[in-house]
């Protein structure tokens, strides 16, 4: 019985689901199936239940499930589209889609804005940016005095916060990243172009009769 359940969980998503995900994202059907190989591996790393929990997500990023990190947590929360506390395969594909090289800059800017809007207020607030800076310094063992952090924040907000209300809205963020395009580097994963060569075993598990190019 246990074997049966375990094996059924390893099945690919239904053909219609795969085709729909491919139609609604930058991925081909083959790439969605290759992503399933990756999803299956991450989602079975702690509990083999066909879902990625936060511990498994952190383990995939850091190779260490004990390490709590506000950025990984934030990304996990954004990937958890249905707010169930876990990432299912559809969430995984749709969220990773934003990181595809072919996806519009507008979508990448919107996602990165949400990423830094830690409290979902519709603004990136100075206190949030300070919190993230302190977390980054802690993570990287880098030490900066508080007045240096304040200087960095002042400089950043004087450039980004054009209406000087102490917070950054989406329009200001769009202007800011246009002047600092390197900020969007984290929003593109070139790896996603080659996902089928990274996970070629999808061919043996495919549910789709004719693998679309």
């Amino acid at each position: 019985m246990g074997c049966f359940v375990s094996r059924s969980r390893r099945k690919f998503p239904a053909q219609e689901k795969t085709v729909t995900l491919a139609a609604e994202t930058a991925f081909t059907v083959s790439e969605v199936e290759a992503l399933y190989e990756l999803f299956r591996s991450i989602s079975s790393s702690v509990i083999d239940d066909g879902l990625i929990n936060k511990e498994e997500f952190q383990l995939a990023i850091f190779k260490n499930k004990k390490k709590e990190n506000i950025f990984a947590t934030r990304i996990f929360d954004l990937f958890d589209v249905k707010k169930k506390g876990v990432i299912d395969f559809e969430d995984f594909v749709r969220s990773l889609n934003v990181f595809h090289p072919n996806v519009s800059l507008e979508d990448k800017i919107a996602f990165s804005f949400r990423l830094y809007d830690l409290r979902n207020t519709g603004f990136i607030e100075r206190a949030e940016v300070k919190e993230m800076l302190i977390a980054l310094l802690y993570e990287s063992d880098m030490k900066l005095a508080d007045d240096v952090i304040e200087t960095i924040l002042n400089k950043t907000f004087s450039e980004a916060d054009l209406n000087e209300d102490g917070k950054i809205d989406l329009e200001e963020w769009t202007n800011f990243v246009a002047k600092n395009p390197s900020l969007l580097k984290i929003m593109t994963l070139p790896y996603l172009r080659d996902i089928t060569t990274s996970f070629p075993s999808f061919i043996f598990n495919s549910n789709v009769d004719e693998v679309a190019a």
Binding site: I61, N69, I75, F99, V129, I152, L189
Partner: peptide
């Protein structure tokens, strides 16, 4: 670049927690 020469978001984007390339390293 020295940390003080970078803007806050350039620094933040250095976090490993934001580097999703690690997801593919399985």
């Amino acid at each position: 670049d020295q940390p003080t020469a970078m803007n806050a978001f350039e620094l933040i984007s250095l976090s490993k927690g934001l580097n999703l390339e690690n997801l593919f390293d399985i």
